[in-house]
């Protein structure tokens, strides 16, 4: 019980620190001089004070395969993330790969002190102790999910997009109304399914696949007319996985609430507050925006369907 309370206390202190930091930075920005964000991290987030799975190492994790643009750089020399189109997250390339190393650096870890392990999506929220410190796998932040695990602050603003292939009934669609008669598919566990049900509200029930690869196979087979997925993945499918792929467009956010991807941590992890502070700092100092430009800027938006 006492540990829980002290964790909450750390959380509150950090949140206060973040607020103070944000105000300070706002004032600094107004004054025209840039603040040094690394100096503003709470002292309790010093590298040697962090409760890590392996002392001195930051254990990061994602699912396998790891697809572009979230992870890039190929997989030469990799033993886990193998095969065509798969990427070794330890390359530190692609948006999530780069964010992971930016977070690690800000927490004080050298590249050599970062270890990657494979965790499936389901295992990331199964009860009990986790093997990872941080799990980055395009997981959308939701209040119900936070009952089972901790989320850091959001590191990516998600938009859902619709992708199809030539010859599909929705290949030329320009409005949400034109998608209503389509048979749409999405990957299980994604908020893309929510987008189909709540934004498009199609006449036919959506098909739900275990992986995006199966959704692609179903689209190729004409079993479904289109796939709803996050916009960067939609572009990846068009460019790498589909022949004659077409981006139909981007869906407006559901109920005007911006969906975000967050880093997953063990429930009540002592690291959560520090990692959130780091993500907030990376957002504030423009690092996230720069990484976005580097890895997905040209693939981050499509015409918004009305």
């Amino acid at each position: 019980m006492s540990t829980t309370r002290s964790r909450i206390a750390i959380g509150q202190t950090t949140r206060m620190a973040v607020v103070v930091m944000a105000m300070a930075m706002f004032l600094a920005a107004c004054g025209g001089s840039a603040a040094s964000p690394s100096a503003s991290l709470d002292a309790s987030c010093a590298k040697d004070k962090l409760a890590l799975k392996t002392a001195g190492k930051l254990t990061l994790s994602t699912d396998n395969p790891a697809y572009s643009p979230w992870f890039q750089g190929g997989n030469e020399g990799a033993t886990v993330w193998t095969g065509d189109y798969n990427n070794d997250p330890a390359k530190g390339q692609g948006y999530e790969g780069a964010v992971a190393y930016a977070v690690a650096e800000k927490l004080g870890f050298a590249t050599a002190d970062v270890v990657w392990i494979h965790t499936t999506f389901d295992a990331s929220f199964a009860p009990g102790a986790k093997d990872f410190d941080l799990f980055l796998n395009q997981v959308s932040i939701k209040a119900e999910r936070a009952e089972a695990i901790d989320f850091s602050s959001g590191y990516y603003d998600v938009a859902q997009g619709v992708v199809t292939i030539e010859g599909s009934p929705i290949a030329g669609a320009t409005s949400i109304a034109e998608l209503k008669t389509a048979k749409l598919g999405a990957q299980i566990g994604t908020t893309s399914l929510d987008a189909i049900n709540n934004v498009i509200k199609p006449d036919t029930e959506a098909a739900v696949f275990n992986t995006n690869d199966e959704a692609v196979a179903a689209l190729n087979g004409g079993i479904i007319d289109g796939i709803v997925t996050d916009v960067p993945t939609a572009f990846y499918m068009r460019d790498a996985q589909l022949t004659g792929g077409i981006i139909v467009g981007q869906l407006p956010s559901e109920g005007g609430v911006q969906e975000q991807f967050g880093i997953v941590l063990e429930k009540d992890s002592a690291l959560t507050a520090c990692v959130s502070a780091v993500v907030d700092a990376l957002k504030a100092d423009g690092t996230l925006a720069a990484l976005l430009t580097e890895w997905i800027a040209d693939k981050a938006s499509a015409p918004v369907l009305k």
Binding site: F121, D122, F125, K142, E144, R145, E147, A148, I149, G185, I188, G189, T190, L193, D194, E205, A206, A207, V208, F209, N210, E214, A215, A218, I223, I224
Partner: peptide, 20 residues
């Protein structure tokens, strides 16, 4: 497997939506 939302898939959808 083929995307049909039968009982098991429906359960998986709810499981992944709420992490329970």
């Amino acid at each position: 497997i083929l995307g049909v939302v039968e009982a098991f898939k429906q359960a998986q959808i709810l499981k992944s939506a709420n992490f329970n």
